[in-house]
Simulated assay, not measured.
Amino acid sequence: MAIEADFMREYRIDDSELARLSWRRFLVLLHGLSPEALYPQLVEKTPKQVDDTEAATIMSQA
């Protein structure tokens, strides 16, 4: 729902246009959302969990 609302607000893309987007175009628009959009804020607040200990080690060194 947040993505649909953000696309309507920021790009003026309605449900019918959204359904016709290619995956590439959808991802380009998704990554292009402003920081004020709801979706990026939700992603930022989502806890990140890493199960693989090697990946956790790499991430802790970054």
Rank of each mutant, 00 (worst) to 15 (best):
K48N: 01
Q49M: 10
S60H: 06
Q41K: 15
M1I: 07
S60M: 07
E54W: 09
D15M: 08
E17K: 13
V43P: 00
L29F: 05
L42S: 02
S22N: 08
E10M: 06
K48F: 05
R12F: 02
T53H: 11
R20Y: 03
I3E: 07
D15N: 08
L42H: 07
T46G: 00
L33A: 05
I3W: 01
Y39R: 07
P47D: 12
E4S: 12
I58F: 12
A19I: 05
R25W: 04
A5I: 09
P35K: 04
S60K: 12
E10F: 13
L33Q: 04
A55K: 12
D52F: 05
V43R: 14
P47W: 09
E54D: 13
I3D: 02
R24H: 10
A62Y: 10
D14F: 02
L18Y: 15
L21Q: 06
H31V: 04
T57C: 07
K45S: 11
D6S: 02
A2E: 12
Y11L: 09
D6L: 03
D15T: 08
L18K: 14
D15S: 14
Q49F: 12
E54V: 12
R24Y: 07
E44N: 04
K45R: 15
P35I: 01
S22D: 13
L18R: 15
L30Q: 05
S16G: 00
V43N: 02
F7W: 04
E36T: 10
M59L: 15
I58G: 03
S22L: 06
D51T: 09
R24W: 05
E36C: 01
R25M: 11
T57A: 15
F26K: 12
Y39A: 11
Y39M: 14
I13S: 00
L33E: 02
Q61S: 14
D51W: 11
Y39S: 13
A56H: 06
L18E: 08
L21D: 07
M1S: 12
L18M: 15
P40M: 00
S60R: 14
S16L: 09
R24M: 06
R9N: 11
Q49W: 10
V50T: 15
L18D: 01
Y11M: 07
D51A: 10
E54I: 10
Y39H: 09
P47I: 08
G32L: 04
A62K: 08
R12Y: 04
L42T: 03
D52S: 09
P47S: 11
L42M: 15
A19F: 04
S22I: 06
A19G: 04
D14H: 06
S16C: 02
Y11R: 11
E54C: 03
L29M: 14
Y11K: 12
E44S: 08
M1T: 09
I58V: 13
Q49D: 05
L27Q: 08
A37K: 03
I58R: 14
V28E: 15
R25Q: 13
A37H: 03
L21R: 08
R20L: 14
L30E: 02
E17I: 01
P35F: 03
T46Q: 09
Q61D: 11
T57R: 15
P40I: 00
I13W: 00
I58M: 10
A19N: 11
T46R: 13
E10P: 00
K48T: 09
L38V: 13
P35S: 04
E4M: 13
L27G: 04
S34V: 06
G32H: 05
